[in-house]
């Protein structure tokens, strides 16, 4: 299965590659929709509902991007990718943007020739285990069997963590979150490790979430963000500033509901610039003047997207933590819009 897929992907990489050099924005406009790579199904981040509509934190970023480019948040198609296939899908041109809780690392940026456009979720790798095992710390995990998704940074962090602490473990490599759940819930592995947001999402869908505990240790920095291919700076700018626009919108209190009234009545020059009332900022990135207003109109600002998908009132129940705005004790910070 995956061998064929990889070969097809490699072949596609060699054939489609030619089209990649041309402007992604022009290609996207010509085909009329954005192809967005998401995960194969992680509740809260990217998951199709019973009708096949994709929902989630990463999905909503793509909808905002579609709003900015086309003024229509539905002008986006989703490609589910596994941890293994995601980068090939992006560099072969199969997807235009990858929003799949992907960790920004040096080698992915430099060696894999990808461009991370920002960070939409500051995460860290954690461990989830069965409460009945009586484990209280990751340092008690010597000899444990650990389920882990292949092709992720968590796989490397795990090897480093256990090596540094002189402990042994038995890795059980798996392809998707669904397979991990099957093995973990049947206790074929003692521990499931991935980003803590992913653990929370998996725990939320367990039959009895109380029987599972997330251990206190965070063993890595996992800055997650959307990414595009190297070499198309115009498209990267669009992807970067859609994300920034959503964060600035939260800062300025612009929501999906009040974006129109804000645009007509604002006295704040930065809001006026952002919403296209003042200046020609949309033209600088090849979009219409109201691109940011359309992006915000799609699914709301950063806070709205967070709260609707993974916030405290959802089944996932993540608090903002370090992902709060810098003005509210977090580290979320967008460059000035001018």
């Amino acid at each position: 299965m995956s061998k064929t897929r990889l070969i097809v992907a490699a072949a596609a990489a060699s054939l489609v590659g030619g089209a990649v050099a041309a402007g992604t924005l022009d290609d996207v406009k010509a085909k009329g929709f954005i192809q967005c790579g998401v995960s194969t199904g992680l509740v809260g981040f990217a998951n199709p509902d019973a009708d096949g509509n994709w929902n989630g934190f990463d999905v909503d970023y793509c909808r905002a991007l579609a709003g900015a480019v086309f003024g229509d948040p539905e002008a986006v198609k989703f490609t589910p990718t596994t941890g293994k296939t995601r980068f090939t899908a992006l560099s072969s041109g199969e997807v235009d943007v990858l929003a799949r809780n992907t960790t920004w690392t040096f080698s992915r940026d430099a060696d894999l020739k990808l461009t991370f456009v920002g960070i939409n979720y500051y995460d860290g790798q954690g461990f989830m285990t069965h409460a009945s095992l009586g484990v209280e710390s990751a340092h008690d995990l010597d000899g444990a069997t650990i389920c882990i998704q292949t092709g992720t940074t968590t796989e490397l962090n795990l090897a480093d963590f256990f090596r540094a602490n002189n402990m042994s473990y038995e890795p059980v490599p798996i392809e998707t979150n669904a397979e991990a759940r099957e093995q973990f819930f049947a206790e074929a592995c003692d521990v499931y490790t991935t980003d803590r947001s992913g653990l929370a999402a998996t725990r939320a869908t367990a039959e009895d979430p109380e029987a599972l505990i997330v251990l206190p240790e965070i063993i890595s920095k996992e800055p997650l963000g959307p990414l595009v291919r190297h070499g198309d700076d115009e498209w990267a700018d669009i992807a970067r500033w859609v994300l920034n626009a959503l964060i600035i919108a939260e800062e300025k209190g612009i929501t999906a509901a009040n974006v129109d009234s804000m645009a007509s009545s604002t006295n704040d020059p930065e809001v006026a610039r952002l919403l296209g009332v003042e200046g020609e900022y949309g033209g600088m990135i090849g979009l219409s003047a109201d691109w940011a207003a359309n992006a915000i109109r799609a699914r709301g600002n950063y806070a709205e997207i967070f709260d609707n998908n993974i916030g405290p009132d959802t089944a996932i129940g993540l608090s903002r933590g370090v992902n709060a705005l810098y003005t509210e004790g977090g580290i979320l910070y967008a460059p000035p819009f001018r």
Partner: peptide
């Protein structure tokens, strides 16, 4: 396929060479 064509491919990004 899991080591060379899986994790190694993914961590190094050398699709052509590994395949």
């Amino acid at each position: 396929t899991g080591t060379l064509g899986g994790i190694t491919l993914n961590q190094t990004g050398r699709e052509l060479e590994t395949i």
